[in-house]
Structures are given as structure tokens and as C-alpha cells.
């Protein structure tokens, strides 16, 4: 399916979405972010991938660094980051709802105990 120009498809396992979701629960530094993401999403983000995403998110103004005396600098989600995450959540929710709706329809038309029929394939 072609993507409509100007829209962005969000994926729940994208590092930026995972980081924003984690920071929506409160400010965290790198290691705490990694542990939190592993806990709620089961995704292990290595230091390189995590800081690559943090760099991009900070450049786009979606997260902000907080002052810290420690080397472990915490980050918090910005207002723009919250708006971006909210849009992403709606986007993913729409996709989840559409998937659930189609699965329900497929299950209604297929006989009990049989796999749902897939359009374009012989039954």
C-alpha cells in the first residue's frame, strides 16, 4: 500500500518512539532509559543506538537535557515531544483498531476452527 504524501507511519519498536514513551513517564538518563525500555517493550537498545536516537530527538527539540552534576545526564520529554508522541500513539492506535476490525470480520466469515480466508488466495 502506498503511503500518503506528508504522513508518517510510526512503528512501536522505533527507538525514538520507545525513548519518548519512556520519558513520558518522567526524566531518565541513558542507562535508566535502556532498562525501562527493556522492561515495557522487551527491546534491548545498546548505548550506540540509544545515543544515536537521543542525538536526533534533541536536534529536533523533542527531548531536553536536564542540568546534572553527574556524568549521567537525564533527559525529559519536551512539549513538542509530547505532541509528537501523542500523534504517534493515535497513528498506532488507528492501525491497531483497523487490524482488529479486519481480523474480526475475517473470523466472522470463516468457518469455526478454520484459519481466516486471505483475499486473493484460494480457500
Amino acid at each position: 500500500m502506498a503511503r500518503t504524501a506528508g504522513t508518517k507511519t510510526h512503528r512501536p519498536n522505533d527507538p525514538p518512539i520507545l525513548i519518548l514513551t519512556s520519558l513520558a513517564g518522567g526524566p531518565k538518563h541513558g542507562h535508566a532509559l535502556s532498562k525501562d525500555i527493556q522492561g515495557f517493550a522487551g527491546v534491548v537498545l545498546g548505548p550506540g543506538a540509544l545515543y544515536g536516537a537521543i542525538t536526533r530527538l534533541e536536534e529536533r527539540g523533542l527531548i531536553e537535557p536536564l542540568e546534572s552534576d553527574d556524568r549521567r545526564r537525564p533527559y525529559r520529554i519536551s512539549a513538542a515531544g509530547s505532541a509528537y508522541l501523542a500523534e504517534a500513539v493515535v497513528n498506532m492506535q488507528c492501525l491497531a483498531d483497523e487490524g482488529a476490525r479486519r481480523l474480526a470480520m475475517a473470523n466472522r466469515v470463516s468457518a469455526p476452527g478454520r484459519a481466516p480466508r486471505i483475499a486473493g488466495y484460494p480457500a
Binding site: H29, G30, S34, P47, L50, R71, R72
Partner: peptide, 13 residues
């Protein structure tokens, strides 16, 4: 900009 933080995270990991 990020070296100290990444170094600390590597140590923690």
C-alpha cells in the same frame, strides 16, 4: 557533547 554521558552508560551496561 555526548561523550561523557555515553561513557557513563557504557560503564553501567
Amino acid at each position: 557533547r555526548y561523550g561523557d554521558e555515553l561513557g557513563a552508560m557504557i560503564e553501567d551496561d
